[in-house]
Design a protein around this nucleic acid. Sequence first.
DNA 1: TTCGTCCTGGTA
DNA 2: TACCAGGACGAA
Length: 270
Amino acid sequence: MPELPEVETTLRAVRPALLGRSFRQVEVLRKNMIKGTPDLAKKIAGATVRDASRHGKYLFLHLDGNRTLVVHLKMSGRLGLRKQNDTPLTYERIRLHLGNEELLIFNDPRTLGRMWVVPTKDLKNDSSIRLLGPDALTASETEFLARLQKKKGILKAVLLDQSFVAGIGNIYADEACFLAGINPLRRTATLKPTEQKALYRAVIRTLEKGVKNMGTSFSDFADLFGKPGQNQKSLAVYGRAGEPCRTCTTVLKSEKVGQRTTVWCPRCQH
DNA sequence: TTCGTCCTGGTA
DNA sequence: TACCAGGACGAA
């Protein structure tokens, strides 16, 4: 589920809640959610959270001892801050005890999410991190355009390519294309300079709106305290195939691009 | 570049 | 019962 705005929403709650807190005990209920070394629990037991940050859809908890805990929520993961006596969430996979009867929970029905620890100095060389383009929310227009001009292929696929810019997923890609008035099936090479700039502005505005609305929630996503986001109420095209365009009432079209469903308005988007 | 795969659950 | 789902990776 989570794309950049959902991860940013999580980060903004995680940072104040976890700064200075230590992992007293770590319970890994699903081993397949730990990438690399299986002894994550041993590696971070007792570690204190010194800072938290984000790049694209990756969340980082920087720990003392030059360790960084990397978290990727993938399709259905979310973090929760819970009390020992709270009713457990339905799909708790990793439980990090913080002391004071509090827990950081990695909840994930589909168990596609991943958590792993790397030496902080090696973070940029991590096999997942090193290929990422600049963060989509903070990329400058110059940088965005330069990278776009180097990319060939179908626009939708390029937007989803994390090595282009990091953080855009299926929802926000479709929403950004609608806002820019560009058909997501276009080849990037055919975009005029004015369209390229419109696309950049649309990406930024779409992501900013997602962050402002605390993310898009269908079934799984919620913030650290279980509160769902609000952005799903204002989606223009995602999930609305066959429904009328909110701007011109034309029926929205849908097609698979890559393996992802893509929705657009054939009249508003050229 | 395209595909299957990793998983489970919700819905038609 | 079949199909779909916010993501990413490795193989062909």
